[in-house]
Design a protein around this nucleic acid. Structure first.
Lengths: 341, 341
DNA sequence: TTGCACGCTGTAATCGATTACTGGCAGGCT
DNA sequence: AGCCTGCCAGTAATCGATTACAGCGTGCAA
């Protein structure tokens, strides 16, 4: 292992000078050149651990997610990883299973490991990030809004719900149900609100019968179809407000009578078909998705945006906390400042 | 930040004693108790960075994967994470996109970051792990076999291929094609070999026409169906040797005539249906999977097994390199030693 | 009683990079 | 000439935990 002293000796300078050259402080050109030569000859890379000890923070960021097995979050992870890596940071991945206690654990780990920062998709509306923030660690919250005064990046969830419902309205459906997540998550609530607003805008009632608070997993969507088909009158279409609920809905329909229908007229042989709208992407769909009204998201963009904010904080920005809205149009990753609440 | 000296002062002992208590060396019980009290009162946690500097390796393991967006690998990641976390290690995730250059980069990062070890699903048969091994870092290779003398955990891929083909034979199919991955990966080759053997065992010819070397992604499976339907005589069923190729196959069939058929008799309205067998799981399938002959895997078990081996190495085991075969029966994570090659 | 061995504890060195502080030198000003 | 300023480079302190080494006390044997 070559150390900084080896480089210093070889270049005929002090370790301080080597350090300065490597960190871009001003040094006489001749010495800088000698240092660079020595570094190249010895193949020297600074020891990250020693550097972290001295600098009091590491070059690692934590990405704390409810569920890495959800393709939405894996895409987020890719985005974070891309941006972080380009800046020389590594990403450690942490799964909370949507449980506050595991989340706390990981946030503590991030703290005692002196990680440079945390990107957090919180399990509930009150993540334990205050201590981290007080200690000067950078934190960016994504996907779900929280009341804390930290940087946040979310989608315009109300607009997403509105758009999904409108797409089904445009296809001619009239009695449109909504399968959303727990009422405790802002994402679930906001998307459902958008759905409701779209129905109102179309002059239709958003019957409470038609709103199901399930969970954001496959089984939630699956079971919700059972519930909804028991309503009378039954809906003629359903909006699933996230990808996994959408998978569950589609699988339930496939198990019953062959899948979603593109328009109200298209009754299948096994009963009246349901139209389906899904907020999110279905990268592993095993059926035709052209009959589904998809409102694609841009989770990877969400990840890169969050990482960018985080890196700015790590670099020392002390601007007031920002709340960005991740744009989704056509997979670009443009970002708009949040509407004033 | 409370440091070890604070604890030492409070307990009225030296830092050496505190360290020894915390690391389980023998210390007079009275002092140990005092240290424990002080630790509890101050809420002390040792600084991992400082510890890593001194111990010359960190408490982090790298998990280097071709593609975290593939549900198979995310499940592997969960397994590794569970086991590593239980042992107090963090996991950093690295995406190689199946490219050797990115893989090299990450392996180098793992080295210069003094990571305790690496779990690697290699992009090709010759990962650059020799330098890591020489430097005494622990390495476990998973999923694909390599010629290096390191611990490896794989599935019995030949048996998997055999089983998938046999399942289709049992359903009455006779002209069974195979869509597998690049001929450069042992996994793709072995599974195809199993497919071929099953046909031979049934007294059928494994026509070269029916073996497609695609890639292990969705588009590979999708396009392969186009190729196979152009053969004459066309196959009556197809084995996809990994999950994503399976997704592609199913989606291609859905786009053409409504999906897989459970048996050769079941011609659909839009043409002769194909039977489908898939090695792997389809957690995000949006169609009925009961018509698909699934050979489920146990990627999470693969991950925990690999992590277990890795942790043993990190703890200092210098047993000869092991090659384990991950069992898949019923989702358990039992492990058998490899058959002698 | 003296000597030796053993076991526990404390002091201080160590891991490797960063950086506060000090000192030297050059150039400009009075 | 004498003084001050500013720039640059080197020395050494520093981050916090671990551990080699030394010292001390106890107990046993001669």
């Amino acid at each position: 292992m070559t150390r900084i002293v080896d480089v210093a000796r070889r270049a005929g300078v002090s370790t301080a000078t080597v350090s300065r050259v490597l960190n871009g402080k001003s040094v006489r050109p001749a010495l800088a050149a000698a240092v660079h030569d020595a570094v190249a000859e010895l193949g020297y890379t600074p020891d990250r651990t020693a550097r972290s000890l001295r600098r009091r923070h590491s070059e690692t960021v934590a990405l704390v997610l409810p569920d890495v097995e959800n393709p939405f979050f894996t895409a987020v992870a890719r985005g974070v990883e891309d941006a972080a890596l380009a800046a020389g940071y590594s990403v450690v991945l942490c799964n909370t299973d949507d449980r506050a206690d595991k989340e706390d654990l990981y946030l503590t780990v991030a703290d005692v490991e002196n990680m440079a920062g945390v990107v957090l998709a919180p399990a509930d509306a009150h993540p334990a990030i205050d201590r981290l923030v007080e200690r000067g660690r950078s934190v960016v919250v994504i996907d779900r809004r929280v009341a804390h005064d930290v940087d946040q990046v979310t989608f315009d969830n109300r607009a997403l719900g509105h758009r999904a419902a409108t797409a089904l309205l445009d296809r001619g459906f009239r009695r449109i149900a909504c399968v959303t997540g727990p009422a405790t998550t802002s994402t679930a609530v906001d998307r459902a609100e958008g759905w409701r607003a779209a129905l109102h805008d179309a002059g239709l009632a958003a019957d409470d019968d038609l709103l199901v608070h399930a969970n954001f997993r496959v089984d939630g969507g699956y079971d919700a179809i059972g519930t909804l088909l028991g309503r009378s009158p039954a809906p003629d279409a359903v909006v699933a407000t996230n990808n996994l609920a959408g998978v569950g809905v589609l699988r339930a329909l496939a198990d019953r009578h062959g899948g979603p229908v593109p328009a109200p007229a298209g009754d299948g042989p096994d009963g009246p078909g349901l139209g389906v709208g899904v907020i999110g992407d279905l990268p592993f769909a095993t059926s035709r998705t052209s009959d589904v009204a998809l409102v694609p998201l841009n989770p990877r963009g969400l990840g890169t945006t969050a990482a960018r904010l985080l890196l700015e904080r790590i670099a020392g920005s002390d601007a007031p906390a920002r709340h960005l809205v991740q744009e989704i149009g056509d997979g670009t990753d443009a970002v708009a400042p949040a509407r004033p609440a």
